[in-house]
Design a protein around this nucleic acid. Structure first.
Length: 329
DNA sequence: TAGGCCATCTGGTCCT
DNA sequence: AGGACCAGATGGCCTA
């Protein structure tokens, strides 16, 4: 049984109209008044109206029965069949609608996994996911057009534009968490200690990047301008001697987030098994470095010594404080 | 308890 | 006619 019995649905839809009527959408009420004849004092559905019409018909039948007896006429029976069919179609439509919404939610979940902050335990709301995704695209575009390495703080501030305070905190928390992987050196510059944040969150086999599963667009080909970059290999080799994860979160997963850049982003993320444990959130640096033409002025360029593509300027004070500053004004 | 978020139902509209 | 899409309504759940 996919839905509640029809009668129950009717009951659900029969609260007094005035009692539940919005709230704030006066303008929409006008719109609704145009498209929907205003119900008197109920929000009965069309189906209930059908039922009412049936009842009315019954009453008319009863009234028209000169003998004072209930008479069932032909058309009445036909109407019952029709109503049954309407009910069935309505239930089928409900099932389709549920399925459609599930598909939409699946897509949204996929989106959650490729935006910079993902937690299985503390999911971003739908609206925040969309906002963050938009900001993320915007931030990456800005960075690419700027042609230089982004400042982490400004990058995150762009990410957090328009986001709610809780989401901002979450994103900032992601960065702070992963910022622990970075230690400032004596010059105040940033040196990386341990695996890069991305890698920490998404460990994968080096070979996976070359042959990403799913919708990879980046065939490794030396003739191509862009080619998928093997984060793992580069970072592992570069930070080989660095301290291990230490206290940073470590997620064991054979899954690989394939990220290829071929003029467009092609992101693939599969959820690490350990993801979300201990309330850890992942900040993934989804910029894709190349060794080709783009690399010339790109912040994604991987220098010969394989520096981390992001120039991280971690100040003494909390990143989160700075990010949150606009909210306190 | 109020408010936010979500799933579901529902009817309207558009398209095939 | 029927399906897809959309938006409004509603109730449940959760959290501050």
């Amino acid at each position: 049984m996919l839905t509640l019995p029809f009668e129950e649905n009717d009951m659900m839809c029969e609260p007094p109209f005035g009692a539940s009527f919005p709230r704030e959408n006066i303008g929409e009420q006008r719109k609704q008044d145009i498209s929907h004849p205003a119900p008197d004092d109920t929000s009965e559905t069309k189906e209930t109206e059908d039922d009412n019409s049936e009842r009315d018909e019954d009453e008319r039948d009863a009234c028209n029965d000169e003998n004072g007896q209930h008479k069932r006429r032909g058309p009445r029976r036909k109407s019952g069949v029709r109503v049954e069919r309407v009910k069935m179609r309505r239930q089928e439509a409900n099932a389709r609608e549920r399925s459609r919404m599930h598909g939409l939610n699946d897509a949204l979940e996929s989106l959650r996994k490729v935006v910079p902050c993902y937690s299985k335990t503390q999911k971003l709301s739908k609206i925040e996911t969309l906002r963050l995704a938009k900001n993320y695209i915007w931030a990456l575009s800005e960075t690419l057009s700027a042609g230089k390495r982004p400042d982490l703080l400004s990058f995150v501030q762009t990410l957090c534009k328009g986001l709610s305070q809780p989401t901002t905190n979450l994103v900032a928390g992601c960065l702070q968490l992963n910022a622990r992987n970075f230690l400032t050196d004596h010059n105040g510059d940033v040196a990386f200690s341990g695996r890069p944040a991305y890698d920490v969150m998404y460990p994968y086999q080096s070979s996976d990047m070359g042959t990403p599963t799913g919708h990879s667009t980046g065939t490794i080909d030396s003739t191509k301008t862009f080619r998928p970059y093997n984060y793992q290999g580069a970072y592992e080799s570069y930070y080989e001697g660095a301290s291990p994860e230490g206290s940073s979160p470590h997620f064991e997963s054979p899954l690989s987030p394939a990220m290829n850049f071929n003029g467009i982003f092609s992101l693939k993320h599969e959820e690490p098994a350990e993801y979300g444990k201990n309330s850890h959130y992942g900040m993934r640096y989804c910029g894709v470095p190349t060794r080709g033409a783009l690399a010339q002025n790109s912040m994604y360029r991987m220098s010969p010594d394989n520096h981390f593509p992001y120039d991280l300027h971690l100040r003494s004070q909390s990143i989160q404080d700075e990010i949150n500053a606009p909210f306190h004004n």
